[in-house]
Write a protein that binds this DNA or RNA. Structure first.
Lengths: 316, 316
DNA sequence: CCCAGGTGGTGTATGTCGTACACTAGTGCG
DNA sequence: CGCACTAGTGTACGACATACACCACCTGGG
């Protein structure tokens, strides 16, 4: 009840994730074999069907034998995560000084998102392994670093780079979730999704008084859908692009467009020029808005502002 | 194994959701009381702690007594979903002819997203009730219809309106998921998140060879984070706005800005004007880009296009 | 040779869970 | 009175993770 899916001993988990994968050729059980079989089971029958019993049976051992090699199910799943992310083939960078990605950030980010999308196709259970304290293994770390390197190309601030990666990673996860719920239920019930919804006449009885729903229905909005992944990814990246452009305009504001002398109360940058009109406190409209938000969140320090979180490597 | 969390009898579920909530004043058990207590338990102790046993105990009845009123746990959770969405207070529209939302779509969409965000704060378990075949009850239906009415204000095509609602709803869900994982683990372990990560020195040993990670770390990208919800919502809505603008420019392009005579290979629209420069195949830059994407995706027709889904009312 | 100690696999037991099934007590109606 | 129906109960089953005691084997040291 207290530590639902949490690994009890993080140090041990780190050791398992980063330790030398001892493939010492024995015939009996070993860690990599257990992880591989667990992935196989989860791929085939879904995460809820993944149990220590099943994995052990498939391997021809008893349930408890697994516990000689892995401390528990939580740790096993961490290992599964890191292993499949390894399929992306992102090796650790050669040396710590390697430069940010070349090429434009957008195509890089799109490629990163699509690679993860494909990974989620192969391993649908990935979407159900969320958690802020998932310990990143070497593969997850390398992949996350790659994402950061790509996002650095936007030229945004560090906190924004992190937020961009989190946003895009989160989007991929959501899209995968939505698609896989459909596929899972089709597989489990044996009935196609459209078929299932068509036979819900008793529901459509109640749908009369909803105007927009009816309009969308008649206009075919539910028949020929946008591909939710392509559509959402395009919008998300567009949103990031707009932020970048706006930042450029902002600097432009400071230097040329709003030439009042002074110092911005938010970002501290200075500017000068002809003094006309009312003296201003902020270098740009964006900074004024930022100050407003800051004031606002300071007074109503509401629940779930999500501040002071410092997890690393959990973009997805 | 076959029907993990699926209601066995959809018709019965619809009846429960849409049926007259008989509050006939009896002293014993009734549906609304069970649902209310289940919500209370889930709010307090999380979804994994929600069991038929616990709900029954809290109500002072035996486990099996619940099954006289609700067919099973899956149906109970559908009822919980619809009940809490009812807190948003979106009544069913008065008559089927009611107009699309007035006001601009953006502030409406933002308000809708923030209302759902607040709802997810109150009921964190909502994020774990996904599924393409969740049967919408009256409250969910009313709320979804409202979202569609707002999104109609964008002037986009019907399929795009649906996709926008799905995108924004999915974003809220992801953001809530990310935040609540942090809060849950803090609550369960009694250790704050930043504290927990700080004591993972054995992990930071391995973090040396990742360049971008180090740069972000030094630049403070992990210390003072963007608020992931505000940041993501702004980017997502920006992305939608850009789509709208692009649609406008498209029409504009055809009629005035690019007056070369010809017919667009993508949208088929015609234009004419002074013939100067190289003859062009597309009416606008947007259409040229669209053609490029189409060519690109046609060659690498990857798995999981996710088409032909026709679920209704599952924006989140 | 014996024997201590480590390693790897096993068997049993505990406490969860959802829910099938058979049961009882109360109620209304002919 | 008998009958059917309803609401609540109790027991039981098979799933689950895993704690704990146990045993078979190997290795090295005396």
């Amino acid at each position: 009840m207290t530590e639902e899916n949490m690994a009890a001993d993080p140090a041990r988990t780190v050791e398992l994730l980063w330790g030398a994968k001892e493939g010492h050729g024995r015939t009996g059980l070993n860690l990599t074999g257990i992880v591989a079989m667990a992935i196989e089971v989860a791929d085939a029958d879904g995460l809820p069907a993944l149990s220590m019993r099943r994995v052990a049976e498939r391997l021809g051992f008893t349930t408890m034998s697994l516990y000689r090699h892995v401390p528990g199910k939580a740790e096993l799943m961490e290992l599964m995560r890191d292993t499949v992310v390894g399929e992306l083939g992102v090796a650790a960078p050669d040396h710590p000084e390697s430069e940010p990605e070349d090429g434009d950030w957008r195509s890089g980010m799109e490629a990163w998102a699509r690679a993860h999308w494909a990974l989620h196709q192969r391993h649908p259970w990935l979407v159900h392994t969320a958690g802020s304290r998932r310990l990143p293994g070497p593969n997850i770390m390398a992949d996350y670093d790659r994402a950061l390197r790509i996002a650095e190309g936007t030229g945004l601030q560090a906190s924004e780079v992190v937020a961009v990666v989190q946003l895009v990673g989160g989007f991929v996860k959501t899209a995968a979730l939505q698609v896989h719920e459909v596929l899972r239920e089709e597989r489990e019930s044996g009935v196609s999704n459209s078929q299932w919804w068509r036979s819900r006449e008793e529901l459509f009885e109640h749908m009369r008084p909803y105007p927009a729903l009816g309009r969308m229905w008649q206009a075919g909005g539910f028949d020929e859908r946008e591909n939710p992944f392509d559509f959402g990814l395009a919008r998300t990246l567009d949103g990031v692009e707009l932020l970048i452009r706006r930042r450029r305009d902002e600097k432009c504001d400071v230097n040329a467009l709003h030439p009042h002398a002074g110092q911005c109360l938010v970002c501290g940058s200075e500017w000068d020029g002809a003094r006309r009109g009312r003296p201003r406190d902020y270098c740009s409209r964006a900074c004024r808005q930022r100050a407003y938000r800051r004031r606002r969140s300071a007074t109503s320090a509401s629940a779930g502002s999500g501040g002071s979180v410092s997890s690393v490597g959990s973009a997805f």
